[in-house]
Amino acid sequence: MATPASKTSKRKWPAIVIVVVTLLLLVYVIRQWDRTPRTDDAYVYADTIDVVPEVNGRIVELAVRDNQAVKQGDLLFRIDPRPYQDALARGNASLVAL
């Protein structure tokens, strides 16, 4: 014959299992949510390095690829020299005119 205490403990087991499974599922969902990238605000976080040249101009040659390892002194890009050659020619012409 079953006692009232054993009936109560038999009824508690399904509830305990449901609570434990729910908690495990919640932990899994939260971990997956943190691992996958989100674009809720359209922001992407990445390590970047800004390259700021001493002169400005149009880039006519890009000597590196994405994620390529480079060393100090390696050519990264070539800036169009025509505006500077033109300015040099105008400066030389104005010197000759003097």
Rank of each mutant, 00 (worst) to 15 (best):
E61A: 02
V27C: 07
P14G: 05
S6F: 08
V52G: 01
R11Q: 06
D40K: 14
V44A: 06
P37L: 01
S9K: 15
V27S: 03
V60Y: 12
R11N: 07
V19C: 08
D40E: 03
V29F: 14
V27E: 01
A42H: 12
R35P: 12
L26I: 10
P4D: 02
V27H: 05
W33V: 02
K7Y: 06
V21N: 04
Y45A: 03
D50E: 10
V55Q: 04
D41R: 15
R38Y: 04
L23W: 07
D66S: 12
P4T: 07
V20C: 11
E61Q: 05
R65Y: 02
N56L: 06
V52W: 08
Y28D: 04
L25H: 03
T39F: 13
R65S: 00
T3H: 12
D47L: 07
K10V: 05
V17G: 03
V55T: 09
I59P: 02
T3C: 01
T48C: 10
K10T: 11
V60T: 08
Y43K: 11
D40P: 02
D50K: 15
V21I: 13
S6T: 10
S9F: 15
A46M: 11
Y28K: 06
N67Q: 10
R58W: 09
V27W: 14
V19R: 12
E54P: 04
D41A: 12
D47K: 12
L25S: 02
P37H: 00
V19Q: 04
V52M: 08
R58C: 00
N56R: 14
V52F: 11
Y28Q: 05
P53G: 03
V52E: 01
V20S: 07
S6G: 07
D66N: 10
Y28P: 00
L26Q: 02
D41Y: 15
Q68E: 10
V60Q: 03
A63S: 10
V60S: 09
D66V: 14
V51K: 00
K12N: 09
V19K: 12
P14Y: 06
L62A: 01
V29T: 05
T39M: 11
V21F: 08
G57Y: 13
K12A: 11
A42N: 09
V19P: 01
D50T: 14
T48N: 09
V52D: 00
K12G: 05
S9C: 15
V51F: 10
R65F: 07
R35A: 12
V55D: 06
Y43P: 00
A63V: 04
I59G: 00
I49A: 00
